[in-house]
């Protein structure tokens, strides 16, 4: 999971990486792409980590304050 957090930080320092992910809007292909692009950058995480981030992103969009 730490590697996924590192990858997420990379996405917002690298326009090309950001846009490569943006170009894929189909959910399952997006998860596979994120895992592959992560591995290419030395970030080892699983599809389940990306799925968890998708779920967390949906949940977080519904609340306005942290616990």
């Amino acid at each position: 999971m730490a590697d996924f957090a590192r990858f997420r930080a990379l996405v917002f320092t690298d326009v090309a990486l950001r846009d490569a992910l943006w170009a894929q809007r189909e959910r399952y292909a997006f998860v596979a792409l994120a895992v592959r692009l992560g591995a290419e950058r030395g970030c080892s995480f699983e599809a389940t980590d990306v799925e968890a981030a998708l779920a967390q992103g949906l949940l977080a969009s519904l609340v306005t304050s942290s616990a």
Binding site: L21, R25, R27, L54, G57
Partner: peptide, 29 residues
Amino acid sequence: RLDDLRFTDPFFEGTIRRALQHPFNLAFR
């Protein structure tokens, strides 16, 4: 991220809901 998605829904929330259908906007906000 909206790119060229315009605010044409009756409310702001509706356009954001459409944008959140893109997995990028869930995982990498």
